[in-house]
């Protein structure tokens, strides 16, 4: 077992997790079977993907879609389904580029 895991004496009471710490530790992107690919040329910046993403994994800058947080995206495909312009498509994870 990795050494950085805490002992039972170091855990918060009742397993209550301090705010904002969970996503830093849990890279849920490793759960993904399918990966969303963003095609910037087709994107009309309607932000429907950002609105519907259940994992806050649509990255934005100044209210514009700029990419996908692959550390946390679980590959549910909601963004691809909701996109009105097919600007997001799903590919098998094994065909994706490592870290991207």
């Amino acid at each position: 077992m990795p050494a950085e895991l805490k002992t039972w004496k170091e855990l918060p009471l009742g397993g209550v997790v301090p705010g904002g710490t969970t996503p830093e530790i849990n890279k849920t992107g490793s759960w993904r079977a399918e990966r969303p690919i963003w095609h910037e040329d087709k994107c009309i910046q309607c932000l429907q993907c950002w609105l519907h993403c259940p994992d806050d994994s649509i990255l934005t800058k100044q209210q514009k879609m700029v990419g996908i947080d692959y550390d946390h995206c679980k590959g549910c495909g909601v963004c691809a389904a909701i996109c009105p312009k097919d600007a997001i498509t799903m590919i098998p994870e094994r065909e994706g580029q490592c870290g991207k």
Partner: peptide, 9 residues
């Protein structure tokens, strides 16, 4: 001071 209750373990 937000916190998560009932987290998965």
């Amino acid at each position: 001071r937000p916190s998560t209750w009932g987290a998965f373990a």
